[in-house]
Amino acid sequence: MMEWTTLLLLLSAATPILFAALGEAVAERSGVLNLGVEGMMITGALAGFAAAHATGSPMVGFVAGALAGAALSLIFAVLTQYLLTNQVATGLALTMFGLGLTAMFGKPYEGVKAPSMPGGPLGINWVIWLGLILVPVIWLVLNRTRPGLILRGVGENHEAAHALGYKVRGVRMAAIAIGGALAGIGGAYVSIATVLQWTEGMTAGAGWIALAIVVFAGWSPWGVLAGAWLFGGVTVLQLRLQAAGVAVPVQLLSMAPYLATIIVLVIISARHKYAGGGGTAPGSLGRPFHALR
């Protein structure tokens, strides 16, 4: 059963990143670059943990995490879509805001234990299942439905989408909120299901890895899944190596998942480019849109 537990650990380690990266992929496909993923994750982590602790129900925790992530993302959405602020600067500010906010409000929860997660089919909890199901669902919605087509159209050429009568701003507000909610769930998973307690800054850069994965995955949900599993796999591997007492500094081992993910994804995307295929960035990514009526 050793293999099964390893697989479980891998799936579990990949889940926060999978959620956050799927959400960011949706936002970026609509043409919005939100660098605040880390801030939305940590907010989701605290809000989720607090709600789960107060009610004793992890389920309520995840809902709270999603709502908190979405709420934070709406700050970004209003600033960038209505007040036309720079998306990069606003995203960075959102991350700092989230980290600072949670550091302040998280104090009472330090050292508190999370309620235990119920298991699910095959011993895999239902949040992991939800993440796995979301991959084909998001792919299907983006590529095979009309709302998905409109979202991609808005991200590809917002001027043209506007000229055809689509509400560029509305589509983007919705995409940003979905991105925020998914990042919030990813963050809540870290505090409720992985670490089982709250510590300041506990998402530890997972939001940044999610951002990198989206780019190297060519904005495709399947690519995001591969990237998240890669990260999860190396995380489990380095934990095993630490446990086995290998004579490598712990810092290097802890660094390995981040490093390996980025190196592998860079190689993949470089080969895609060389072969002329692969994903290209949405045409209007990061550009502000302002309609004159």
Partner: peptide, 8 residues
Amino acid sequence: HFSLFDAL
């Protein structure tokens, strides 16, 4: 100016 979506 064509209102087309290049990637689609």
